[in-house]
Amino acid sequence: MLEVSHLTAGYARTDVLFDISVRIDAGGFVGVLGSNGAGKTTLLRSISGLTRVSGGAVLFDGKSVNGLAAEAIVDFGLIHVPQGRMLFPDLTIEENLQLGSYRSGARSVYSANLKRVEHYFPILSQRKTQRAGVLSGGEQQMLAIGRALMAEPRLLILDEPSLGLAPRIIDDIFDVLTHINAEGVTILVAEQNAMKVLEHARFVYVLENGRISHSGPSEELARSEAIQKSYLGLA
């Protein structure tokens, strides 16, 4: 479904990513593991069109999306939940969800998607008329994912959904992602939380200093000594 090949990208004159190749098949649940500053956010932003690609290609369904504006890429069903959630703080929860289904392909399935979001995150339907800005961190992350689900995603890419959240909430969020994936939505999640990524994703890429240092099925990586040492805190 998504193929990133030999991607180089960055900001201004400084490249942050070098020769990245990542592949996700339809229905897959893929993780990108990396510490702060490894280039996870830049990789996701390059895929969704927020960051200019300086070399290589990003193919979605075999078609190049290089050079397309982020707002046009959304129309393919490639939906990005950005780092820091980026909600619309002065809009209500309901209005945030309505804007999630702004893209033309999602408006006709608004009510079905709203039901789905309310099923996964019942707290959102209880607080519909409150401003997004007053939500707790966990609720904000739920709303960010809910808003993305309203866009009828085919590929959902998430940037550090666990950031700043309590362990119990992180568990809930990854459980929901697994359910969404089981419903047929392909998922790419970038995380520092190695435990969670290796537990839920089926295939994981490890990003270090802008390059892919390891990749493989999760069970295999979880057994690798280098990963255990650097990311799981095991000796």
């Binding site: 927020l50 939906i79 950005p82 980026m86 619309f88 809009l91 804007l99």
Partner: peptide, 24 residues
Amino acid sequence: NLAGKAMRAVAQNQTAARLMGIRV
């Protein structure tokens, strides 16, 4: 109105608005 809400969304966070498919 959805267009009116999109306008408010753009004012609050342009990047997020683009990620909703709103033509800023």
